[in-house]
Amino acid sequence: MPASHIRPVIRRAVRDDDAALAALDRRTWSPLHAVQPGPPPAGDPFFDAVHLPSHFLVAEYEGRVAGYLRLIAPTSLPAHAHVRQIQGLAVDTWARGRGIARALLEAACAESLRQGAARITLRVLGHNAPARRLYESAGFVVEGILPGEYLIEGEYVDDVLMGRRLTV
């Protein structure tokens, strides 16, 4: 089957994904999307007390871990229970252009609905035009901008808030 017809497999992360996801995180780190300086050091675990396997969807492509997406409730407030938030999306460099990010977004929306959410939100850096185009093509709209919210490599960068309704 041609590569263009192969669909990624999206699944929940498991503890055994730690090393593969940590390595992917190091390979894909960029100031285009990261507000933390530098990639995480080799040997640092991917999962910790705040970043649990249950928060992540993993994309596999041709049997290899190709990407991940972190999906969580943005707060523990009952009034906020109808919202899920994407707090990280990464696709390995070798897997780009194969529909991995789109498949992860579709799976995140489906999982959010399964969890009873009516909305899904995310934040993206203003200078990350490729990610913004991807999110817009997946139905997300800009709902707010925090101008110059981050100072990254000597430049002020906007924090763009995007969201999408999941129900009619």
Rank of each mutant, 00 (worst) to 15 (best):
V91H: 00
P39S: 07
A79G: 13
A95D: 06
L105T: 02
A131P: 04
I86W: 03
H127R: 14
V168K: 13
R114F: 06
R12M: 09
P37I: 06
A108I: 01
R119P: 05
L57F: 00
A23F: 00
G97N: 09
A59F: 00
P39C: 09
L105K: 05
H127G: 13
A129C: 00
R15E: 13
P53N: 04
L146G: 11
R119V: 10
A81D: 10
F140T: 07
H33R: 08
R133N: 01
I100T: 03
R123Q: 15
V157Y: 03
A131F: 00
W94M: 07
R119S: 13
L134T: 08
R102N: 03
D48Y: 08
S54D: 13
V91S: 09
A107R: 10
H55V: 08
G163Q: 09
D18G: 09
L24Q: 10
Y68T: 04
W29I: 02
L166E: 01
A81T: 07
H51G: 05
G148N: 12
T167H: 12
Q85T: 10
A108K: 09
H82S: 05
G97I: 03
V168H: 15
G144C: 10
L52I: 01
A117Q: 06
S76F: 03
V160I: 00
R164Q: 12
Y61S: 00
P37M: 03
A138N: 10
A95S: 11
Q87E: 14
W29E: 02
V9T: 13
L122W: 04
A79T: 14
V35Q: 06
W94A: 14
G63Y: 04
V157F: 05
H80Q: 09
A107Q: 14
P41E: 12
V124D: 00
P8Y: 04
D48A: 09
R98N: 10
R98G: 03
A107D: 05
V14F: 02
A23D: 03
R102S: 12
M162N: 07
Y68W: 15
G154F: 09
L77I: 02
G139S: 00
G126H: 08
T121D: 07
F47P: 02
W94D: 12
S54P: 05
L32M: 12
I72W: 04
A79V: 13
Q115H: 14
V83T: 13
L21P: 05
A20V: 04
T167K: 15
R26L: 12
V91W: 08
D48M: 08
V65F: 00
S137K: 14
L57D: 11
P45D: 10
A42R: 07
G144W: 07
A22L: 05
R164F: 03
R70M: 15
V50M: 14
A19P: 11
I6A: 11
P130E: 01
L52Y: 03
G148P: 01
D44W: 09
A59S: 02
V168A: 15
A129Q: 12
P2V: 02
S137R: 15
Y61H: 15
E149D: 13
A23K: 02
I100D: 10
I6V: 15
E153T: 00
P45H: 01
H80T: 09
A107C: 11
L125D: 06
V65Q: 12
G43E: 11
G43T: 06
D159F: 09
R84K: 14
A3K: 04
D25G: 08
G97M: 06
V142P: 08
V65K: 11
C109P: 02
